[in-house]
Design a protein around this nucleic acid. Structure first.
Lengths: 138, 138
DNA sequence: TTTTAAATAAGAATGATTCTTATTTGATAA
DNA sequence: TTATCAAATAAGAATCATTCTTATTTAAAA
């Protein structure tokens, strides 16, 4: 994960390359959780004291608009961000509110197949979001 | 949908029967959309001017706690309520934020079957939420 | 190097939801 | 039927994630 790599990611998507964007993308890419904007801010603010939370929100949103990252709403009404943009499902822990990726090729295929078969006359399905809700064991 | 029916629903779940609870349950039961607390409030406030929004929130939440209704978070971070509590999926319109039920026995079976096969060593799946995102055709 | 549109910092504003507190009410027991 | 009291409600303040506003700064083009 070189600076050059991130810089290319950002500029190739049509965005100006700035220090803030580099730091924010890098923090999100490192994170294996699905951090909130505030969590991203907490990670980077020590090393970047003048960076503001509003910038984190705005930047993450422009990344989403430009297809660099994904976002989704968690069960608590807080936006979560994800640098990994291939199709995958999520495990949501009702106790800790942690969200983990869940990858299962069989499931993804099954769902893609299901969607392609659906022909609703007044709704065009574009994508599907699957959340398995439950509890982390101990 | 008689008053008696609703009263039984409420008292059987262990809650006191009050005018507010009757009105709120009735409004939600009538709604085929998945209204927000505020939308429920808008529906009933004309006929019940002294009823407060806080009571709507508190009442809907106690209905959820007692298994009378379901709630879920929409993609906009707003809580939606649903008097229908059997397993079903949702269609979410990215433009209007409308949410409609989507029932498909084949899909439900497939997912139940999938869940029962899953044995994750550190996560206990309890239920699954499926949202098909897309757009309403005109 | 100059120019300029875009990005940022700082903090105010917003909107959904929760909390606080005083008042009211439903259900139980006398 | 009435008194009692825990639970429910009304009203509005408080909270928290997010968006908006505006002045300032900056990346990249000329």
């Amino acid at each position: 994960m070189t600076t050059e790599f991130i810089k290319n990611k950002i500029t190739n998507s049509g965005l100006k390359f700035t220090h803030q964007r580099w730091v924010i993308y890098d923090a999100l890419y490192q994170a294996d959780s699905h951090p909130t904007a505030d969590q991203v801010f907490e990670i980077i603010k020590l090393a970047n004291p003048s960076l503001s939370l509003g910038t984190v929100y705005k930047t993450l949103d422009s990344f989403v608009q430009n297809g660099l990252i994904q976002k989704f709403m968690d069960q608590n009404g807080v936006m979560r961000f994800d640098a990994i943009i291939d199709a995958h499902s999520h495990l949501y822990c009702k106790e800790t509110h942690e969200i983990r990726d869940f990858r299962n090729e069989e499931l993804e295929k099954m769902l893609q197949n299901f969607i392609s078969k659906q022909r609703l006359n007044d709704f065009e399905i574009e994508d599907v979001s699957i959340v398995f809700k439950g509890r982390k064991k101990q």
